[in-house]
Design a protein around this nucleic acid. Sequence first.
DNA 1: GTAGTGATCTTCT
DNA 2: GAAGATCACTACG
Length: 182
Amino acid sequence: MGSAFDAGQSAPDLARRLIGARLVVRGAGGIVVETEAYTRDDPASHSHRGPTPRNAAMFGPAGHAYVYRSYGIHLCLNVVAAPGEAVLIRALQPLTGVDLMMQRRGRQGLRQLCAGPGRLGQALGLTLDDNGRPFGGPDLWLFLPGSVPENVIAGPRIGITRATELLWRFGLAGSPWLSRRF
DNA sequence: GTAGTGATCTTCT
DNA sequence: GAAGATCACTACG
């Protein structure tokens, strides 16, 4: 654990590398166990049709956050990998600030504390002000593990209807903290 | 365990 | 007007 976060790579590569990374948002967070990659050529990506006010951060600097509202209710967190490419953080193993996250989520089980992009956003206390903020402080932190975990598996992404043949969902094999089994 | 529905914001048709 | 990178609640087997 501990190497600095270096961005500027393709989203699928970064998505795989982020498994096992440590994510902390203002004192709450844990180990990343599930991610998804989205690119510009990808019909399922927000960036596919070009920049809009909402997805502007996705075309901003790599290593910054892209936070968007999902289904009018939830806030989801992405890491910008390259212009128009980002990695959606889908699930964490809770580690830091668990009490605070439980409080924000309101008596949900520990298993469902950060299992899913919307739940994760609520547990971390994300706001739209986090959109476009850099990882590396003062609010957002991301530490890659020294070595890439070997037990990373890939599968189809969740909740999309286009480009479902791409195996761009990555997860820590056998982890009980995944939003769904692979 | 599965199935249906409501909540409510951004974009596209 | 409809769909979407979602979740929680309810009803029913």
